[in-house]
């Protein structure tokens, strides 16, 4: 998990660098400009401010990993190189530095963008199906496996065991012989008749 996070961070940073170097000078002052005083939310922060910048960065990465970039939509705020996402990340960092909890920050964004902004939808109301579906499918799959396994076990004695003895083999072959002798006989006679030959033992 940590490696994935680190890779995502690296990729995001590399992309962001590409974009800003591609549009040298064109990149707006967003986030990188001298930031004005941090703007608190309407409620006080629940936590004490992080002890170090590294801690702030780590929490910022965790929070922004869970939020969707409104501009590019398929990426998290942490992974997106878009200016809008970088501004969001700067805002998240600002809030983390003031001691706001992940839940407080998520609430702030949900109030503005809806639960849509959460990459993992909350386990409530209309989202229950999302969380229930895997359990239902897993249960259904196990039921099918169990059902077919039981069928196979009950079917087994008929098909495989007991091991046939030579005498049994003789008996087992018998029906085919009988079919040949009794049921096919009329056809054999007819073929022979059409060919102008007579069946053995039948004079002309």
């Amino acid at each position: 998990m940590k490696t994935v996070l680190a890779l995502a961070l690296l990729a995001g940073a590399a992309l962001a660098e590409d974009v800003s170097s591609a549009s040298t000078g064109a990149s707006p002052a967003a986030a990188s400009a001298a930031d004005p005083a941090p703007q608190p939310l309407d409620e006080p922060p629940l936590l004490p401010p992080p002890a170090s910048d590294a801690e702030t960065d780590a929490t910022t990465a965790v929070v922004s990993d869970g939020l969707r970039c409104p501009v590019c939509q398929g990426l998290s705020v942490n992974d997106s190189p878009a200016d809008g996402a970088r501004a969001m990340k700067a805002r998240i960092r600002e809030l983390v530095a003031m001691g706001y909890s992940q839940e407080q920050i998520e609430d702030y964004f949900v109030a503005r963008y809806g639960t849509w902004v959460l990459l993992a939808p909350p386990a409530e109301r209309q989202h229950w199906a999302v969380y229930l579906a895997p359990v239902v499918f897993l249960g259904g799959g196990l039921a099918v496996i169990g059902w077919s396994y039981r069928n196979r076990r009950t079917a087994a004695p008929v098909a495989g065991a007991p091991a046939p003895t030579p005498a049994d083999e003789g008996r087992a072959a018998a029906p085919a012989d009988e079919l040949e002798d009794d049921d096919l006989e009329p056809y054999r006679r007819r073929i022979l008749a059409e060919l102008g030959l007579s069946a053995p033992g039948e004079g002309r």
Binding site: A33, A87, R112
Partner: peptide, 10 residues
């Protein structure tokens, strides 16, 4: 410049 106002407005 920071984009904060835009975020505040969603």
């Amino acid at each position: 410049p920071t984009g904060r106002m835009a975020i505040d407005y969603g």
